[in-house]
């Protein structure tokens, strides 16, 4: 295949992480090729959010290697900032800048990090807000928007940096049920457009529909790594069977 020479977009190799005595990531191995959508499932406390946050070094790791687009994560500093600019991240709690309007939220990083002129940054920001369906909210402050609208704004803010890869850390877990779909629709659209995505979520529907691959984590380990069809119809491990049993019965 052609991908043999190209490095994977994300490579996680032999990663261990401790929170004090708690071993939260145990020798984790994971490769995400360019253009693939990987959904990470698992019970709470399984380390999936931590894994997601280690990839742009919001959580430093204790041992192992993490590479983004063939480049190992540098230590804290200007170089790490440059790498983070290429890795979009969407948080469970949105984390929009509370003192800035929606359009200013989207414009800030392109202007400060990429040195994009204001007019151009605004134009791109408005196009992105249009794409996620909240262009009419551009001049409001985050607190004036619904949770679903805030999360879509946060996705637009991440996309404004033209990232090579997008990380989603439980993007719909803090949303009211009726707002989950609007966010998932935006994410499905992104997946269709060929964005490389690592999505930590509890949304099984999204995993079935949009994922190329499902990773199942439990107790800090990657237990299964398969296609959605395989995982949902014929999980191999008992832990995955147990997990799916709890979720799919109600």
């Amino acid at each position: 295949m052609t991908a043999a020479s190209a490095p994977p977009m994300i490579r996680v190799a032999g990663v261990d992480k401790f929170f004090g005595p708690l071993h939260v990531l145990k020798n984790v191995q994971l490769e995400v090729p360019k253009g693939q959508v990987v959904v990470v499932l698992g019970p709470s406390g399984s380390g999936k959010s931590t894994l997601c946050r280690t990839i742009n070094r919001l959580e430093p790791i204790d041992s192992g290697v993490i590479e983004v687009d063939g480049q190992p994560l540098p230590a804290e500093g200007k170089e790490l900032a440059r790498l983070r600019a290429d890795v979009g991240m969407v948080f469970q709690s949105f984390n929009l800048f509370a003192h800035k309007t929606i359009v200013d939220n989207v414009m800030l990083a392109p202007q400060k990090v990429r040195k994009t002129p204001a007019a151009e940054a605004r134009k791109t920001a408005m196009e992105l807000l249009e794409r996620v369906g909240i262009a009419n909210q551009a001049d409001k402050f985050p607190a004036q928007l619904s949770g679903g609208q805030q999360q879509r704004a946060a996705i637009a803010r991440a996309l404004a940096m033209k990232p090579k890869v997008m990380l989603f850390d439980e993007p719909t877990s803090a949303l009211d049920p009726e707002m989950v779909q609007e966010v998932l629709d935006v994410m499905t659209g992104l997946a269709k457009d060929g964005m490389t995505m690592l999505v930590v979520t509890h949304e099984m529907g999204f995993a079935r529909k949009a994922a190329d691959r499902v990773i199942f984590m439990s107790d800090g380990e990657v237990v299964e790594d398969s296609t959605p069809e395989e995982f949902f119809s014929a999980p191999k491990s008992n832990r995955a069977k147990d997990f799916l049993g709890k979720i799919l019965t109600h």
């Binding site: 742009n56 919001l58 900032a81 440059r82 790498l83 983070r84 600019a85 290429d86 890795v87 979009g88 991240m89 948080f91 984390n95 929009l96 800048f97 509370a98 800030l108 990083a109 400060k112 990090v113 946060a154 803010r157 991440a158 940096m161």
Partner: peptide, 10 residues
């Protein structure tokens, strides 16, 4: 707020 800024490359 700080995490979002760092994640954006600020």
């Amino acid at each position: 707020q700080a995490e979002a800024s760092r994640a954006l490359g600020l």
